[in-house]
């Protein structure tokens, strides 16, 4: 319920307070993520053995370790990293010998583009499937919709990707097999990445729709002779969409983090590939930047979703 007697000035203050509190919580989460990734990545072992040739003499190994500051205690290394990071310096990639931030930021637009396209694909399928499954509960449409959605969840995305390449690139020759450059290039990677969450999203829409379709105002609408199509697609869906919106931020962030496999299959020049390759080569600065940026995007998208509740459903109130 809207806070009584406080709208609109008081409500604005409440939102601002809520926003600041959430930003603070987000910052704490990001710092926490930076600590966790910093220490965990160092548990994987010494990056020097991967950086230098196998025959490198011990004196050289020690010298390079010192230059990289890897001989300091890990807590001290973290403080040095955090201090520099506050000034925007995330260090140089061990392997690429270039600024880690630049390396990741250059790849980020490609990954965000892919994640957005995948999210759009999943919504485009989940919403109609969810609505139709609810409206025609137990029917063939319901079964087929659920089956299609479940298929996406059951198949690993690398396999879906390769299957799509086989069908649409090799056999039908209608889509490019890999790379970027046009809308056609994004179709198969977006499907491979976006199919997986369709099942969960469909379930959310379906159960929300079932609740809403059972509600008084819909029954009233029917009683006064409103068109079923208008009732379902305009009035019911608008309310049923709220739970879906709440979870989209999480899905978007998960897609950013999980795009690696799809990026590899389609030679998509994204940040996922860059970071996972950095994990294998123990390129700590790149891993740190990649995880931090993903954390920031995760926190930001969740914050935006939380703030959007009030606009979608004015009944939702923010605690002071």
């Amino acid at each position: 319920m809207r806070p009584s007697g406080t709208f609109p000035r008081e409500w604005g203050k409440v939102v601002t307070g809520y926003f600041l509190r959430r930003v603070l919580q987000g910052l704490i989460s990001i710092v926490g993520a930076s600590i966790v990734i910093f220490f965990i990545s160092r548990l994987s072992g010494d990056p020097i053995v991967l950086l230098l040739p196998t025959e490198a003499p011990p004196a050289l190994i020690e010298q390079v370790r010192q230059e990289m500051g890897l001989n300091e205690p890990v807590w001290k290394q973290y403080l040095i990293f955090a201090g520099k990071a506050l000034g925007g310096d995330f260090g140089k990639s061990y392997r690429w010998q270039a600024p880690a931030l630049e390396l990741v930021l250059d790849r980020l637009p490609a990954t965000i583009g892919l994640a957005l396209a995948a999210l759009a694909f999943s919504i485009l399928l989940a919403v109609p499937f969810g609505v139709l499954s609810a409206v025609y509960r137990g029917s063939l449409i319901d079964t087929l919709g659920k089956g299609f959605a479940m298929l996406g969840q059951a198949m690993p995305n690398f396999w879906v990707g390769l299957l799509l390449v086989l069908i649409f690139a090799i056999h039908l020759d209608v889509l490019p097999a890999y790379g970027t450059g046009s809308a056609a290039h994004v179709l198969m990677p977006a499907i491979a990445l976006g199919w997986y969450p369709v099942a969960a999203q469909t379930r959310i829409v379906r159960s929300a729709m079932l609740d809403v379709l059972d509600s008084d105002y819909i029954r009233m609408g029917r009683a006064v002779g409103a068109s079923e199509r208008v009732l379902v697609w305009k009035y019911a869906l608008r309310n049923a969409a709220i739970p879906l919106v709440t979870i989209l931020g999480v899905y978007f962030a998960a897609m950013l983090g999980g795009a690696f496999v799809v990026e590899t299959v389609f030679a998509w020049p994204g940040v996922g590939r860059t970071v996972v390759e950095a994990v294998f080569s123990r390129d700590f600065p790149v891993v740190q930047v990649g995880v931090l940026l993903t954390s920031i995007l995760f926190v930001t998208s969740n914050l935006l979703v939380d703030l959007s509740y009030g606009f979608i459903d004015p009944r939702i109130r923010y605690d002071r």
Binding site: A169, I170, A177, Y178, V265, F266, A267
Partner: peptide, 12 residues
């Protein structure tokens, strides 16, 4: 072109 996945490279 850099295409790490074997089957995608073959498809290309």
């Amino acid at each position: 072109k850099v295409i790490p996945e074997d089957l995608t490279r073959v498809a290309a």
